[in-house]
Design a protein around this nucleic acid. Structure first.
Lengths: 225, 225
DNA sequence: GCCGAACCGTACCGTACGGTACTATGTAAA
DNA sequence: TTTACATAGTACCGTACGGTACGGTTCGGC
């Protein structure tokens, strides 16, 4: 299983591409965002990037290789969320969590993210879902790691209380995203109210604290009732 | 906005098909589940269903018409969840909610649901996302209606307290599903633990009551601490 | 028995796409 | 200048698919 080779084997050296190749991938990504997977033909990519099909096949192997490279390229661009000096105060911690929620909503709502997720999901039925696993590894896993670190910090600081970290993460993610992601993947248009990510983030984090916050947290944020 | 045309316009008479046509759609659905959208070719459908391509075009117009008909066919099969005599006691209400959560997890994890969602999402980038809106209308909307009725009952009975029904629904859905749906759409395999829908449903409903339950609910179900 | 409608199976057509081969151009080293 | 290499551009091939046309068969109505 080539796609699972580097799963837990260290720093995971991902192949990096030359500037020229990155420019081609950028063109391909743009093409994908504009016209969907139907627009992402080898001839189309070559035309849009002013390169030859032969070069595409030389660099990326075949069409699937190009798609995988586009996924990797976009993932490397997002470089998810800030470095994260760990917060010391409760209000700062809460602010960090809210920022995380806001960023998450913004990233998942981005056109490139939606286009790539659509592409990967569309291919997930066949061929062992290579792209799907790639997106999961490069996208969701990064998010989970960052969220996990945040939560663990909160727990050690005494702001949060939970036994099952996975359960807490699931609740956090679910409260933030809900059916947001799938709706957008299906082409649903957001109402102007739904586009207020910051407000939604605040609500979600408030709910999360109600579930997993310690007494101090509930007191400081909700005035109890 | 064509996609919002029939939103609140009444009973919405959906075209129904002959038994023979339904059998063809069943074959097509089976084909889709097995091989993904690549397997869903007009020739393939005709072969699998022992019908002629000419009949397909006569009945459904074109390939997109067949896809739309398959979506409608599956949606009409699911006939989401029971009729729902409204519960009177708190424990009964909680049980209803848990059952709803369990059913929702099972339905969304079903192979047919996943295959159709993948198909619709894969096409959502192009062509105004006709299929995507169809899935949203026939799937998500039904779920939202049923959940909304449940929640409203709970509120009227005094088991729940909320101001914003949409917010409560979002929390409920998010706590139940989380990133479950998208992960499966991307081809992720569930762990055996994650396949225990009933357990997950109980946890999610417990969390939901912690957010929106009235005092009585918290007392009766959580022994308070 | 005859007729017409519906329909299956197959053959067919045009097109679009993945992938390969070949030529032309530019460029850096010798 | 010459040689080797990388790459753009294009032409080409095989295949697969959407869509159409047509002959043959079944079946209900008369």
């Amino acid at each position: 299983m080539a796609q699972a080779a580097a799963r837990d084997s260290g720093p995971e050296v991902f192949e990096v591409f030359t500037p020229r190749q990155n420019a081609v991938l950028e063109s391909a990504l743009h093409l994908l965002v504009e016209g969907g997977d139907r627009a992402l033909t080898t001839a189309g990519i070559a035309r849009a990037a002013n390169c030859s099909k032969e070069s595409l096949y030389k660099w990326f192997g075949d069409r699937d290789g190009v798609l995988a490279a586009v996924v990797g390229y976009q993932a490397s661009k997002v470089r998810v969320l800030g470095p994260g000096e760990m917060p010391g105060s409760l209000s700062s911690f809460r602010e960090h969590l809210t920022r995380f929620a806001d960023d998450l909503l913004a990233v998942l709502s981005g056109e490139a993210s939606l286009a790539l997720n659509r592409l990967a999901i569309g291919q997930a039925s066949r061929a062992d879902a290579k792209l799907g696993h790639l997106v999961l590894e490069r996208g969701r896993r990064m998010i989970e790691l960052r969220a996990g670190a945040l939560l663990e910090t909160g727990r050690r600081r005494g702001f949060l209380a939970y036994d099952d970290a996975d359960e807490a993460y699931r609740a956090l993610y679910g409260l933030i995203i809900g059916d947001f992601h799938v709706r957008q993947l299906l082409g649903d248009q957001l109402t102007s109210q739904e586009k207020d990510f910051k407000a939604r983030a605040r609500v979600a984090i408030g709910q999360f604290f109600k579930l997993y916050g310690t007494g101090a947290a509930a007191h400081a944020t909700n005035a109890r009732s």
